[in-house]
Design a protein around this nucleic acid. Structure first.
Length: 768
DNA sequence: CTAACCGCTGTTTTT
DNA sequence: CAGCGGTTAG
C-alpha cells in the first residue's frame, strides 16, 4: 500500500485522493447535518451514544453479547471523521480477525457514503506487518521479508534444535514452539527472558534455542506470526523517533475484542496510545465474559485492568441485548454468574419481545441418537419454513462434527463445516506458494527446501544436508549454495541436471517478473519447474481438482499488484471468502461461532470430560473451567430464538464406549429457564446421587498433567456388575445375547441378531 | 532414496 | 479408530 503525504498537515495519509474527498466532505458537514442529532446517531440507545460521543480520553466499552458492539465501533469511527476530529489516516483501528476488519471497513464506508480507503484499519498482525515493512532494518530484516506459516515454523525449529541433540520424544518440538510463542505473546525477546521466565524445557536449553531460532529467522529474512507484533513493539520501545512518528499520525485508536489481547498487543497499544502531551484517545471494546482464547496467550487481565492502565478512563457498559429472547438471556446470565472475577454485567432484553422458548435440554443415549435428534429437529424447522442457514450446530471440538455430518448427509440436508481446511492450507497450494516465495525472496530456505525435490528430482535428504553444510560455510542461503556448487562443478549427473534446470527456471521467472508481470512469471515458473506437469501426470482422482486449485491461486494472484503483496495477503489473511449465500446448516466449533448469531443453535456434547473438556481442566484447573464456562456462555448467546443443549449417556471416544455424565454447566443454568426432555431427568438424578463429580470432582484434581490416565475417564454411574460367562443379558441397542467372554469390564457378547460385540458391562442388564 | 510398517497420540486456533 | 511421524528394510 503506497502512502502519500500531505505537506499541509505534516502527516502520512492514505491515498491522497481519499484525503481530498474526505476533507471536502467534512467541510460540508455543518450544512449537511443541520439537526443536532445526525441521522447516524439516531436510533441508538443512551449508552451506545455515550460510547460514541465520548471521543476524547481513554474509554472502555464493555459490550455484552448482542449489544450492538460492531455498530458502536463503526459509528464511532465515522463520528470522529464526520465531526472533523481527524482524517481517515489519523485513526488506528485494530481487530483480531480479517472478517471483523472487513466488516468494519464496509460499515464505515456505508455511513460515509463512499469507500473508506487508505485507513489504518486491520488486524493487529496486518497493521504490524505494514509498519514493520517500513522499519524492518531496525531488527535486521529487509522490507521484503517473508512471513512463515506454522508448518515452516516447526520445521525451522526442528533444524535449529539439532545441535542440541535433544530427545524429541521427551521434549517434543511442538512444546518448545509453544513456549517460544508464549514468550513472544508476552513481548519477551530472547534478551528479555529473565531466569524467572525461563523454562526448564530440555534441561534449560529453551532460551538458547529460542535465541538461535530468532537469529535463523533474521538470516532467512523471515518472520513468524509472533514476530510481527514482537519486532514492531521492540522498535517502538527502542526507537523514539519511530514512536514519535506514529504519535503524530494517530489521533484516535479503536480496539475491538480487547479481552483477547495478549501482552505484546497490550504493550504495543499502550506505546502508541500514551503520549507525552495530550490525552490517550484510545477506545477499547470488549467483553470479559467472552474471553475464550487464553490458551493462545490472551490475558483477560488486560481488560480487567484498563482503568488502572489509563487513569481517568471512562467506562460504558452496553447491556441491552437485541439478539436473544429473555429466556435465553436469563439462562446465559445464570450460567456465567458462576464465574468469579468478572467486571460484572447483566444482559437485559433490549426488545419487548415475548419471553420466547425455554432452553431445551435433551438427554440422549449416545452420539448417534444425538445426531438423529438434531437432524430431525432441523428437518422439522425446514418443514415450518425456516431456512437452514438460520440453524447452527456448535461443538466443543472439531472432530465432533463427524456424526452430524453423517446424519445430515443421510437425510439430505445441506450443511457447511466452518473452519475446516482452508484453501491456502491445501498441500498443492502451499507448494506453489513455496515456489513464489523463493521467487520473491531467494533467502527463504524453508520454502526452497519444500520444493527442491518437488517434483521428484532425485535430490534427497542427504543432498539437502550437504547443501546446508555448504550454505553455512559460505555463508548464505541454500539457493546461493546451489548456484555455487553448480559453478564449481561439485555436482554431477542427475542431481546437477535437475538443480541446473530448477535454478534456470527461477532465473527465467525472475526475468519475466520484470518484463511481463508476476502472474505470467508465476505461471511460467510452475510450468518450467515441472510442478504443473507432475499433477498432470498424476492419475489419482484428486489430481484434476488440485490443478483447478492452482488455477484459482493464479487467478487470485492477478488481483494483487505485486507478488509480495499477494504473499502477505496469503500469510495474514488466509481466509477465502466462502459463499455465505447458500442455504446450509452451519457446523462449527464454539470458538468459531464467536461473533455470529443464529435463530436456532444446537449445542451437543454437554458432558463432563467433553465440555468442559477434561484436558482443559487437568491443565488449567479453575481458570480453565471458567474459560470453558465462558465458552458455554458464548454458545448460548449465539441463539436468537432457540437454544437446544444435548448430552449423551455414552459416547464413543477413540476406540471404546464411555459412559458420561451431563455437564455441570447444565446444572448451572437456572432451572426456571430450562425445559428438560428425554433421559435428562433420569441422568441428572443419578448424577446428583452419585457422590462426587459436581462437588469434589476432577476440577481440583492434583493429578499430574500429561499423564495418560488424565484423559476422559469412565464414570461409573452404576456399580460394575459381575457377569458370568454364559449369562443371558439385554442391551438396549443389540437386544438379548449370551456372554461368551470378558476382558476387564468389557464383555464379549453373542447377540441373537447382531453377532458378537464387545460391550461395557454397565451397559447391559443381566437377565439370568 | 523410497516403500512399508509400527506405535503413539489424540482440544479449542482470530493471525 | 485413524492419521502421522519416525524407523527400518529393501
Amino acid at each position: 500500500m503506497s502512502l502519500g503525504s500531505c505537506a499541509a498537515c505534516q502527516i502520512d495519509l492514505g491515498i491522497s485522493v481519499g484525503h481530498d474527498r474526505i476533507s471536502l466532505y467534512i467541510g460540508r458537514v455543518p450544512q449537511d447535518l443541520p439537526s443536532p442529532t445526525p441521522e447516524y446517531l439516531s436510533r441508538l440507545n443512551p449508552e451506545q451514544r455515550r460510547a460514541i460521543e465520548t471521543t476524547e480520553g481513554p474509554l472502555l466499552i464493555l459490550a455484552g453479547a448482542g449489544t450492538g458492539k460492531t455498530r458502536v465501533l463503526t459509528t464511532r469511527f465515522a463520528h470522529i471523521l464526520l465531526t472533523g476530529r481527524a482524517y481517515p489516516s489519523q485513526i488506528l483501528a485494530v481487530t483480531f480477525t480479517n472478517k471483523a476488519a472487513r466488516e468494519m471497513r464496509e460499515r464505515v464506508s456505508a455511513i460515509l457514503g463512499e469507500p473508506a480507503e487508505g485507513l489504518w484499519l486491520g488486524t493487529f498482525h496486518s497493521i504490524c506487518a505494514r509498519m514493520l515493512r517500513r522499519h524492518a532494518e531496525y531488527v535486521g530484516l529487509t522490507s521484503s521479508f517473508n512471513i512463515l506459516d506454522t508448518d515452516d515454523q516447526i520445521r525451522l525449529l526442528k533444524q535449529v534444535m539439532e545441535p542440541w541433540k535433544i530427545d524429541t520424544k521427551r521434549w517434543p518440538q511442538n512444546q518448545l514452539m509453544g513456549i517460544i510463542q508464549r514468550w513472544k505473546d508476552r513481548g519477551l525477546t530472547p534478551d528479555r527472558v529473565t531466569s524467572a521466565e525461563d523454562s526448564d524445557f530440555a534441561n534449560g536449553h529453551a532460551l538458547a534455542i529460542y535465541r538461535a531460532y530468532q537469529e535463523r529467522l533474521i538470516a532467512l529474512n523471515t518472520c513468524d506470526f509472533g514476530d510481527l507484533m514482537l519486532h514492531m513493539t521492540e522498535i517502538l520501545r527502542n526507537q523514539s523517533n519511530v514512536l514519535a512518528q506514529y504519535h503524530r499520525i494517530f489521533r484516535y485508536i479503536l480496539v475491538d475484542e480487547y479481552q483477547d489481547t495478549n501482552t505484546v498487543q497490550y504493550l504495543w497499544l499502550r506505546l502508541l496510545a500514551k503520549r507525552e502531551h495530550g490525552p490517550s484517545n484510545i477506545a477499547c471494546v470488549g467483553d470479559d465474559d467472552q474471553s475464550i482464547y487464553s490458551w493462545r496467550g490472551a490475558e483477560v487481565e488486560n481488560i480487567l485492568r484498563f482503568e488502572k492502565d489509563f487513569p481517568g478512563a471512562e467506562v460504558v457498559r452496553l447491556e441491552r441485548n437485541y439478539r436473544s429472547t429473555a429466556q435465553i438471556l436469563a439462562a446465559a446470565a445464570g450460567l456465567i454468574a458462576h464465574n468469579e472475577g468478572r467486571l460484572g454485567k447483566t444482559l437485559r432484553p433490549g426488545r419487548d419481545d415475548a419471553q420466547g422458548e425455554k432452553v431445551q435440554i435433551i438427554g440422549v443415549r449416545d452420539s448417534d441418537e444425538e445426531a438423529r435428534i438434531v437432524g430431525g429437529a432441523i428437518e422439522h424447522l425446514r418443514g415450518d419454513g425456516h431456512s437452514l442457514s438460520e440453524s447452527a450446530i456448535l461443538m466443543r471440538a472439531g472432530f465432533q462434527t463427524r456424526p452430524f455430518e453423517e446424519r445430515l448427509m443421510m437425510i439430505g440436508i445441506p450443511y457447511r463445516v466452518v473452519g475446516g481446511l482452508r484453501f491456502y492450507e491445501r498441500s498443492e497450494i502451499r507448494d506453489c506458494l513455496a515456489y513464489l516465495r523463493v521467487l520473491s525472496q531467494p533467502a527463504d530456505d524453508l520454502a526452497f527446501e519444500r520444493i527442491i525435490n518437488l517434483p521428484k528430482r532425485g535430490v534427497g535428504a542427504v543432498a539437502v544436508q550437504k547443501l546446508h553444510t555448504q550454505a553455512r560455510a559460505l555463508p548464505g542461503p541454500l539457493t546461493a549454495a546451489v548456484v555455487w556448487q553448480i559453478q564449481e562443478g561439485l555436482l554431477k549427473g542427475k542431481s546437477k541436471e535437475a538443480l541446473d534446470g530448477l535454478m534456470a527456471a527461477f532465473q527465467r521467472a525472475k526475468a519475466t517478473l520484470e518484463t511481463e508481470g508476476h502472474v505470467v512469471a508465476a505461471e511460467q515458473l510452475l510450468e518450467d519447474s515441472g510442478y504443473l506437469q507432475m499433477w498432470r501426470d498424476d492419475r489419482s482422482v484428486e489430481a484434476p481438482g488440485r490443478l483447478d486449485n492452482i488455477r484459482e491461486l493464479l487467478r487470485a494472484l492477478g488481483e494483487f499488484g505485486t507478488l509480495q503483496g499477494f504473499l502477505e495477503h496469503v500469510a495474514l489473511v488466509m481466509d477465502t471468502e466462502s459463499e455465505t449465500s447458500d442455504d446450509k446448516v452451519s457446523l462449527m466449533t464454539l470458538h468459531g461461532a464467536k461473533g455470529l448469531e443464529f435463530d436456532t443453535v444446537f449445542l451437543p456434547g454437554w458432558e463432563e470430560g467433553v465440555f468442559p473438556s477434561q484436558r482443559s481442566l487437568d491443565e488449567g484447573g479453575n481458570r480453565a473451567l471458567e474459560e470453558e464456562r465462558r465458552l458455554a456462555y458464548v454458545g448460548l448467546t449465539r441463539a436468537r430464538r432457540r437454544a437446544i443443549v444435548l448430552h449423551a449417556a455414552s459416547r464413543r471416544i477413540y476406540a471404546n464406549w464411555q459412559s458420561s455424565m451431563p455437564s455441570r454447566f447444565i446444572e448451572e443454568i437456572p432451572s426456571e429457564y430450562v425445559q428438560l426432555t428425554g433421559q435428562a431427568f433420569e441422568t441428572r438424578r443419578q448424577a446428583a446421587a452419585a457422590p462426587s463429580m459436581f462437588a469434589s470432582g476432577p476440577l481440583t484434581s492434583t493429578r499430574p498433567s500429561g499423564f495418560r490416565a488424565s484423559r476422559p475417564k469412565i464414570h461409573d454411574v452404576k456399580p460394575e456388575p459381575t457377569v458370568a460367562i454364559g449369562a443371558t443379558v439385554f442391551h438396549h441397542r443389540f437386544g438379548e445375547g449370551t456372554v461368551i467372554g470378558a476382558d476387564g469390564s468389557q464383555l464379549h457378547i453373542n447377540f441373537e441378531n447382531g453377532g458378537v460385540k464387545r460391550v461395557m458391562a454397565n451397559f447391559v442388564e443381566i437377565r439370568s
